[in-house]
Design a protein around this nucleic acid. Structure first.
Lengths: 146, 146
DNA sequence: TTATGTGCAAAGCCTTTGCAATAAG
DNA sequence: CTTATTGCAAAGGCTTTGCACATAA
């Protein structure tokens, strides 16, 4: 999933050192669709990097964000989540199990055009978040009522 | 702007007491388009309620949210903002001056239909946030560049 | 009268910062 | 060898909580 050589080259090019911790953190983000927050990344790496601290995760995330390898997701929880998929896409959170899923191939264009025209803002980005109950949690609920 | 009788009745109906602080906080939210955060509300009321604490503002906001008199806006800042306009609408934040404006009459329907169909989620809500530079800040920037 | 609300101070939670020891280049 | 990074602990910022006093009903 993660192209280590590419990441290494990019970090060096931008003047950052390449450390096992940085590669590991980025690797976690590349190999999950769970949109983990800092603590989830921490827990995932704990067995392999038992001395790694949350501070390192936050500092690394700053860098990965700066060189555009990850994006930050704010779904209205207490903590932020991170996504190695940088392409603009929206997210949906299940209000029961709290999982966050991607919604790929959602066409922002009409909305952006409409808003740009109506507000005269020079638009630079947007975040669309949807909330609801995922199919799995719907099924569980039905079973209980059943 | 604020219908005091309506708010009073609603609070009582839901089992909450009606206090000057609660009415004042809701009144501030009804009389601004600035989407203030807790501290902004606090500062606004400071001259009139010099002993009011931030804790009271947060507690009141919980209640106003619970009885659906306000909505919470999370535009990716450190603090949350609050809006007495409960009708679903999207927001745009200027990345220069940080003001948050409403985008009314934005039609969510096509997006919601698309997402509902594609994800099989039972949708309950959505938040659309746009980011860019407002016309005023664009003008200022142009003046500087000259 | 009595249950709820206010306001202060303290605590909580996520995130950031300072700094000495460590590792990358 | 030099400079950036790690990891610990402490601090910061927003929000919540506990509790004694005050107030609404």
């Amino acid at each position: 999933m993660m192209d280590a050589k590419k990441v290494t080259a990019l970090l060096r090019k931008k003047g950052f050192k390449v450390t096992p911790q940085r590669l590991a953190i980025y690797n976690v983000l590349c190999n999950t669709k769970a949109h983990p927050n800092a603590e989830m990344i921490f827990n995932k790496l704990q067995p392999y990097y038992p001395t790694m601290s949350l501070a390192t995760i936050y500092k690394t995330i700053d860098i990965l964000k700066e060189i555009n390898l990850i994006q930050i997701i704010n779904v209205g929880e207490d903590s932020l989540r991170y996504d190695a998929v940088v392409k603009s896409h929206s997210h949906i959170r299940c209000t029961v199990c709290n999982k966050v899923e991607d919604i790929m191939d959602f066409d922002f264009t009409p909305a952006i055009k409409d808003v740009a025209q109506r507000t005269s803002y020079d638009l630079s980005g947007q975040q669309f978040y949807f909330y609801g109950v995922c199919p799995e949690c719907q099924a569980k609920a039905n079973r209980k009522i059943g």
